[in-house]
Design a protein around this nucleic acid. Structure first.
Length: 577
RNA sequence: GGCGUUAUGGUGUAACUGGUUAACACGUCGCCCUCUCAAGGCGAAGAGUCCGGGUUCGAGCCCCGGUAACGCUACCA
């Protein structure tokens, strides 16, 4: 069911609320575009709010990058942290007092309660529920604590979170694009509203801010549908009127999963650096999920392309809500490239030259590249020979370049995938990349221990491995591969030392784990590590300094090159079979 | 597993709201143009609309039942 609002008495106010947790995301631009179009078309306001309540994932440089990326695309907001506005502050970290007050309201009217469990206790609960095939959910243990108990915990100084008290019953809300959606409350968790660090969770901050900022239409991604009842319940708990909800379909990878950096360049920084024009990117995003008018016969006669190529202004004029399609559109780079080529060709020669000079051949980039090779150049004419890979979109080294001696292509690719995963989370400076790569090359035992998530397991594994090395490896010499015999020897040794059977069992499983890990992840020296990366990045075993090159080339493009390398090799491998 | 959403060629969209042979664009392939490669021009293959029922003279559009994919299931957003 598609509905138009009838009484447009109050002016439209919409918002996007990105989290500064890394590079600006295409999904943010996509949802931003839809909000922007809707607001502009109806003379409403478009608000930018920064949702920085997650201090664990916070990235300091991220906020500015989000501003830059959205500006680059031509999306402008009427209110936001940088431009201000009547309903600020627009940064959630600056609104903690507001949330605290609102939590008090909920606490005193009985729609929320304090919960004193530790994260570990909750994790244990979850594990138990999963083990017994129950849906993992908070069991409500502290839902009805007596005032005396609460006071006791409080005076102990026990940290607590505030959870919402979901009543019995069900909630139905209207999604403007799909119609009514109903959720039974038995499927709605007592969501944490305020974390023990005093910061609100998304759910609370979102509802409070949307209300205080007079948001009339919440246009966001489909992934939020399941938490919308929580939001509706919150509006009710406060006694507020709630906004209209619109849930846009999620952008997808080629395999239809939610778009992700493992399978697609997802950072707007990448598109900028790789030389996509903002007009093309925003046009392409506008094509995703419909919203644009269907081609009329006249337009088809005049050339069908005209029906797919839109400027931002044209999109504002022609965007139509009923044209929105609900199936998750695949973000198809191939078509984006074609669109971009159309825009590029349409440029005047002068504008084209300027575009080149401003991006791929900017003075700043040339300067950075030139510092990389000054000491290893004989004539200026060699510049291109030394730096070509920093100007190419595609570099595909042959196997003799990227497969190290004494390694198989398979294990090399496995390791390269590890490198990619690691670099994705690494801060992009030479020091940080260096440290990360060295971490990857540390001893196999340490790497194994580091791969264990649980801290106490980590501890017990560490002592198990220590024991094993001292009591079994000493007997057999250092570089042994673990076999059943070794494990038996260790068990005997443990029993001789009078250790309990449970220790024996846990040590054994630790060593089993190590053995498996060793088989899966042969250790790579730092030298091999660097060389592999060099080969993939530059297409050659000779290049300017690796780390500096990576920094100059940029995180987004470097990761994309790695990703494309892995993808291509995968395709080649399956093609051969 | 539970809950929710979605479903038209490989991909993005269209089909006057039930009406001939399911359209356009990207991609793929072929031909023309051309010193090459693009661009451009011409053409081709590729879906019978997730499946099964039903309503109807008539269903991609309506109804019922399945299936699959995706999302959520955190002191992340």
């Amino acid at each position: 069911m598609k509905t138009e609002d009838t009484a447009a008495a109050t002016p439209i106010r919409v918002r996007i609320a990105p989290s500064p947790t890394g590079d600006p995301h295409v999904g943010t631009a996509y949802i931003g575009l839809i909000n922007f179009l809707y607001a502009r078309q109806r003379g409403g306001k478009f608000v930018l709010r920064i949702e920085d309540t997650d201090r664990a994932r916070f990235v300091a440089t991220s906020e500015q990058m989000i501003f830059d990326a959205l500006h680059w695309l031509g999306l402008t907001w009427d209110e936001g942290p940088d431009v201000g506005g009547p309903y600020g502050p627009y940064r959630q970290s600056e609104r903690t007092e507001i949330y605290r007050e609102h939590v008090e309201i909920l606490l005193s009217n009985g729609t929320a309660y304090r919960s004193f469990e530790t994260a570990e206790e909750l994790e244990a609960l979850r594990q138990r529920q999963i083990a017994s095939k129950l849906p993992p959910r908070y069991d409500g243990a502290h839902r009805d604590l007596t005032q005396a108990q609460i006071d006791a915990y409080l005076s102990e100084g026990r940290p607590y979170v505030v959870r919402m008290k979901v009543p019995a019953g069900s909630t139905t809300f209207r999604d403007e694009l799909r119609g009514d959606i109903t959720f039974e409350h038995s499927n709605v968790d007592d969501q944490v509203l305020m974390k023990s660090d005093g910061f609100p969770t998304y759910h609370l901050a979102n509802v409070v801010d949307d209300h205080l900022m007079r948001i009339t239409d919440v246009i966001r991604a489909e992934e939020w549908i399941s938490s919308t009842p929580k939001h509706v319940l919150l509006y009710q708990a406060f006694g507020w009127q709630f906004p209209r909800f619109w849930h846009m379909p999620l952008l997808r990878n080629l395999d239809k999963s939610k778009i992700s950096k493992r399978k697609n360049p997802v950072s707007l920084v990448y598109y900028r650096q790789a030389g996509f024009l903002p007009e093309a990117v925003i046009n392409f995003l506008g094509l995703m999920g419909g919203g644009m008018p269907s081609p009329t016969p006249v337009e088809v006669v005049n050339g069908a392309k005209e029906t797919e190529i839109f400027s931002l202004d044209e999109m504002i004029q022609r965007f139509e809500v009923p044209n929105i399609r609900l199936g998750g559109p695949v973000f198809d780079l191939t078509k984006l490239r074609w669109l971009n080529s159309e825009y590029l060709r349409a440029l005047t020669p002068d504008a084209f030259f300027t575009a080149l000079r401003d991006t791929i051949l900017s003075d700043q980039y040339l300067r950075e590249v030139s510092t990389l090779i000054q000491t290893r150049i004989e004539t200026l004419g060699q510049f291109g020979d030394l730096t070509a890979f920093l100007f190419q979109d595609n570099v595909l080294p042959p196997p003799e370049v990227w497969v190290p001696k004494k390694r198989t292509p398979e294990e090399t690719l496995l390791f390269a995938a590890d490198q990619l995963a690691l670099l994705e989370t690494t801060k992009w400076t030479t020091q940080c990349i260096d440290a990360a790569l060295r971490q990857l090359s540390m001893s196999i035992e340490e790497a194994f221990i580091a791969s264990i998530q649980n801290e106490s397991t980590q501890k017990s594994y560490r002592s198990a491995i220590q024991f094993f090395i001292q009591n079994v490896m000493e007997i057999h010499g250092s570089n042994l591969s673990i076999n059943d015999e070794h494990i038996k020897q260790m068990q005997t040794a443990l029993r001789n030392w009078g250790h309990s059977e449970s220790t024996v069992a846990s040590y054994s499983s630790a060593i089993e784990g190590l053995r498996k890990y060793k088989a899966e992840k042969p250790s790579w020296s730092i030298k091999e590590n660097f060389m592999l990366l060099r080969a993939i990045l530059s297409g050659s075993t000779m290049s300017p300094p690796l780390l500096e090159s990576m920094v100059v080339f940029g995180k987004a493009r470097t990761l994309d090159r790695l990703r494309r390398f892995l993808e291509t090799q995968k395709k080649l491998a399956t093609g051969k079979r």
